[in-house]
């Protein structure tokens, strides 16, 4: 008797949304705590320690890892390579995505076909795409270098030449993921209420003017989102480099994430110093994210 009344009291208590809500979010919160927040804290903390993968001879070294970072040319260069990749990849991807979205805005059969097809590379893994381009661009047997030679040009060794490797990697990344930008922009364009165009037309705006004064301002939030995710994603580039150049030639395409991996999980297995590099990257990404967010909000307000 005691038991059942206690049981029913528990039941009524937990049947109120203001209590049961915690039960609903608890599993997610625990998972996020263990696998997101705590790791960030550990990661930041580890960057002040000299610790190798065997946890042998761990000691606190203060800022020494950070001092070392700035004299470590491979680390600093990896940041530059990553930035270079981002600068090459993001604008082109956004541009191709936006152009395709603009060209595909009308709902014709051909356009629908194009939309589905352009999205196919998004579905494939960067690993697979990297391997595909490895073969297509192979200087000895690749099709593309052959075609270039056929039309009388000398073909560079796309992945092997220090000047060409990074632009090539950026190109394949654009090829793989412009579909995402295209879809997001298409959704944004299609969500614009027709009444806005009608009123613009009544004001006597030309198509050009409509594009600049209606379409673009309405798409800024979506565009901002694309830029933001692209920036933060590009700053963590790894997969496609790992399978195509592996960071070569001569570390010329080694990205920061790859350097973290090579430093922490390959000789000399310095997890502590690798965390330092990760911390630096984290700070850069945070600045980029906050910065571009602020800029976009500012732009949005300006346009309204």
């Amino acid at each position: 008797m005691e038991n059942t009344s206690r049981w029913s009291r528990i039941k009524t208590y937990w049947n109120q949304p203001k209590h049961v809500g915690y039960l609903f979010i608890l599993p997610s919160l625990i998972a996020l705590l263990i696998f997101a927040f705590i790791p960030v804290v550990i990661g930041l903390g580890m960057s002040f320690f000299d610790v190798n993968i065997f946890f042998n001879g761990t000691k606190f070294v203060g800022l020494q890892n950070f001092v070392h970072f700035f004299s470590d040319t491979r680390a600093v260069n990896s940041i530059w390579h990553t930035v270079y990749f981002t600068v090459l990849e993001t604008p082109v991807q956004i541009l191709v995505g936006v152009l395709c979205a603009a060209a595909l805005a009308r709902n014709t059969r051909f356009n629908r076909f194009c939309r589905s097809t352009f999205y196919i590379p998004v579905v494939c893994s960067l690993t697979a795409i990297g391997l595909v381009f490895n073969m297509l661009l192979d200087p000895n047997i690749g099709l593309f270098p052959h075609l270039l030679k056929e039309i009388g040009m000398t073909s560079p060794d796309f992945f092997g030449d220090a000047h060409w490797a990074m632009p090539t990697i950026a190109f394949l990344t654009v090829w793989k993921s412009f579909g995402v930008t295209m879809i997001i922009m298409l959704t944004a364009v299609q969500a614009i209420s027709p009444s806005l165009y009608e009123s613009a037309e009544m004001d006597g705006a030309s198509r050009m003017q409509q594009f600049f004064h209606v379409t673009i301002p309405q798409c800024v939030p979506a565009l901002g989102f694309c830029v933001l995710t692209n920036l933060t994603g590009s700053m963590q580039v790894f997969d496609q480099i790992f399978v195509t150049t592996g960071g070569g030639p001569n570390f010329k395409t080694e990205s920061t994430v790859q350097y973290i991996y090579n430093r922490g999980f390959a000789a000399p297995y310095e997890l502590g110093y690798a965390s330092t590099v990760a911390t630096v990257l984290f700070v850069i990404i945070a600045i980029l994210a906050v910065g571009s967010n602020l800029y976009m909000t500012h732009k949005e307000n300006q346009m309204r």
Binding site: F37, V40, G43, M46, V257, I260, F282
Partner: peptide, 16 residues
């Protein structure tokens, strides 16, 4: 957490 890059958590996750 949407803005925590994997780069910073990968080593700690491995350790955990």
């Amino acid at each position: 957490t949407m803005f925590i890059p994997f780069a910073i958590t990968m080593i700690p996750l491995f350790m955990e």
